[in-house]
Design a protein around this nucleic acid. Sequence first.
DNA 1: TGTGTGATCGTAAACGTTTACGGCTCTCTT
DNA 2: AAGAGAGCCGTAAACGTTTACGATCACACA
Lengths: 351, 351
Amino acid sequence: MSIRELARHLNISIGTVSRALNGRADVNAETRERVLKAAAELGYAPNQSGRSLRQGTTNAVGFMIETNRETSLHGDTFFMSVYDGVQSVFAQHHLDLIILPCPFDDDPCDYVRRVVSRRFVDGLFISATQRHDERIDYLIEREIPFVALGRSLSGGPHSWIDLDFEGVAAESVRRLVARGHRRIGLINTGNDINLGYVFADGYRRAMAEAGIPYRPEFVIRADQTSEEGGYGATDRLLALAERPTAMLLVNEIMAIGAYRRLHDAGLMPGRDMAVIGFRRSPQARFLSPTLTCFEVSLFDMGRRLAEAMLGLMPAYRDLYPGPVVQEIWPMHLVGGESDPPPLSLVMGKAG
Amino acid sequence: MSIRELARHLNISIGTVSRALNGRADVNAETRERVLKAAAELGYAPNQSGRSLRQGTTNAVGFMIETNRETSLHGDTFFMSVYDGVQSVFAQHHLDLIILPCPFDDDPCDYVRRVVSRRFVDGLFISATQRHDERIDYLIEREIPFVALGRSLSGGPHSWIDLDFEGVAAESVRRLVARGHRRIGLINTGNDINLGYVFADGYRRAMAEAGIPYRPEFVIRADQTSEEGGYGATDRLLALAERPTAMLLVNEIMAIGAYRRLHDAGLMPGRDMAVIGFRRSPQARFLSPTLTCFEVSLFDMGRRLAEAMLGLMPAYRDLYPGPVVQEIWPMHLVGGESDPPPLSLVMGKAG
DNA sequence: TGTGTGATCGTAAACGTTTACGGCTCTCTT
DNA sequence: AAGAGAGCCGTAAACGTTTACGATCACACA
């Protein structure tokens, strides 16, 4: 069912049919009606390759994910919420979002190159940005509209949106210090993903501001950002001669493992050890004692990602004007039962 | 950078360039060399829209997911493993897998219609199949190559692959019965997703075979397939006048909630209540006491999904011959600490 | 020398759209 | 009544490929 057949069936030229379907002004209302009706009846829908070829645009934007790295980091309701947000904006413009999973044994940059050079999508979201990320350099050079979910040192000025990892770490430390903690552990990711550096920066800065000397043995780089990773990292923290009284984690999935390790050591999170996780995800919400963590609307962040993308695309630039988007999304602390003052202090008071 | 420019740069016709790049036989070895070298240097890659238009094929296969339903059901490392498996096969044929997330407020069937009629992909995987699934009827009618991840009553003979929900339920019941349980609860999904029916069938069949009368109050349809859903469903089970001594769950994420509910009631899973979960996922592996559940290689299942798809695609049918694939993937029990005999029996023995 | 054959390449059509351009018919204005 | 303008529509080119077909050339063979 091509536009030609549809036109023949209606005894109209294909030009008029195309104009009618695309909502152009110079076509009779009655004619348009007939065309739309016939298209619906015959189940006609324009061939995407044809229109892409003609207008040099695919009406699709890709979202690259890595099957190995991120899910283990974020769990995944994370991305689903982001997708929903992006699509809620795209839907208004008949733009489609497609997810591009980079195979686990592929180089991410090669994958981007392949996708981009074949002109499969009009724009690309990338996530899990590395501290130095080749993908960004490449996309800038090729002048492809792209928005990064996560900061990076690479490239010149480009659009990105990131969670406030530094702010979360700093605020966590300040809160713990205010409650009397001095020995604060940090469980970070072991990847060279950029957010790990940012998170550590926030920790260091806040510790320095509190006048607490930096103790490298308190900073653990976990093997994996998963329950097991959190378990193992907590294990290393507990093995220290002088243990921390509090710990903060770059990821709430790891907090699940941390809780378990504490239990297995006969310690109770939120009494024998203060714990502050990261995001208030469904998994985190389910911990007991309730986890002190930070809230953010991923749906809204997805919407903002979409707007940032549209601002870079020639066809929509006028609708979404403004400079390159570089935003750090604040996260709001949700207090839980997991981060009381240190036990020594409580005992001291009590005694 | 089009093929025309590349050809001009080489002083060759575009036909020859195309043949050289596509590995056709009737082109001089030396010429091919020159073409490939120039293409690499100038960074030429064929425009996907152009080739799709010409040969009526996009070299991309879609995998439809629903952002609301499935992740809450499966957690997500589930799909990532499947993607990896699919891609490991597709990579050999220069086929791309793209994930198509159906927006949460869209009708899944409308979404399929849109994707298919625009000829965005050559084939489609669908998942989370409903008991009666319009998508299947539509795809059959349009003669689109598709493979369903999950059975359904809809449509005629079509390709599908499914986990052995019935077998898992039946084997769980048999194991519990063999250990002396008679009052066995079932926590099922509340969606009309097909696997819920299949799981319940296995439960009913095995109970009947054991000669245990069916008690509808022991079968709970959870509000959501999540930690919280499992918590709430367990709550309803515990509220019964005569409680079950064992329970099985259609989903291991719900087992996390079940454990918590039991704890909160002062009961210990694996002592006061036998629990059998579903899949041995990373989350399940992390429970304590260790959960009795079932193992399956999602990567291998993904590979099989890919093979089933290739068998339906005209360009690959000869490489992957055979009839329509309809496979139930067996799952292998991994015993844990969570399903001992009922306490009464143990006490009885002890006493 | 003519002829058949295989290797290599160029030509041009075709895929399904969109859109610039021009033409036709009416109506309105001067 | 002539011209201008608006409304509507048809024509055809163009997007970047692939591929059927035919042309050219060299070479071997009768």
